[in-house]
Simulated assay, not measured.
Amino acid sequence: MQSSSAVAGTAGAPPVPQVAAHFASLEVQNHAARLGMWLFLATEILLFAGLFVCYACYRFLFPDAFAAASRELDLVMGTINTLVLITSSFTAAMAVHYAKEGQNKKVVTMFVLTILMAAGFLVIKYFEYAHKIHVGQLPGPHYHYEGIQLPGVSMYFTIYFLSTGLHAFHVIVGMIVLAWVTTKAMRNEFSYRNYTAVELGSMYWHLVDLVWIFLFPMLYLV
């Protein structure tokens, strides 16, 4: 067993990572953590894939309604949100880079910037939602927008709110995860030997960005 001083590390230095009893080494433990995250991300992709298939089926059934409804979305807001998320993925990736070098203060800076951009994304999405609720572009039987009265248009907004709402939920979860990792970086816990938590948090955030990269053209451009 490692002594408590070995685990805590010297004053001001990152603590030495502990290896669980059922792992042969730290490398094996980190590999298992990454594999677990990849499997989790795969299930998340399958979740959104179901929505993509649903969109494709209904667009085939109601092509005119879906084309007209997509033109009702705010392309400017959608584009800004896309740029915001792409930039946030860059800062999340830089956090991993700095964690490998043991520069925990820069890890904190990068993740704080990522969280702020995530908050900005949600604010923009709030204004989009507020406008659609105001004019009646609501899902299912609640749709009462007078501008488009075509069969299937309410289904478009059902898929829109379901997919973007689910994505927004993942954004919130990602912010919580990154905030937790940020607190660990503030305690100077990461180094070249121990940065897996930063890497896994960044991987989850890249998933959030990747899903939006598919949602944006599907809902706003196609």
Rank of each mutant, 00 (worst) to 15 (best):
T82K: 05
Q29F: 01
V96F: 07
C57Q: 08
R34Y: 03
K100I: 04
H22D: 09
A99I: 09
L47F: 15
N30H: 01
R71T: 15
M94K: 15
M37G: 00
L35Y: 01
H22V: 01
F52P: 06
H97I: 08
I80D: 13
I45Q: 15
Y55F: 12
A93K: 10
A68R: 15
E72F: 11
Y55N: 05
F66C: 05
T87C: 06
A99V: 11
S89V: 04
F40L: 08
F52W: 11
T79K: 08
I86N: 06
L85F: 07
F48Q: 12
A95M: 09
F52E: 08
L61G: 01
R34M: 07
G50S: 13
A21G: 05
R34P: 00
N81P: 09
R34N: 01
G36F: 00
Y98T: 14
F40W: 02
C57V: 12
L75E: 13
S89F: 03
S25F: 07
F60I: 00
F60E: 02
G78T: 14
A49K: 03
L41T: 07
L47S: 10
A69M: 11
L73Y: 15
H22E: 09
T82N: 07
V76C: 10
F48E: 13
A32Y: 05
D74S: 15
F60L: 03
A33S: 03
R34I: 04
P63D: 05
L39D: 00
L46P: 10
D64N: 03
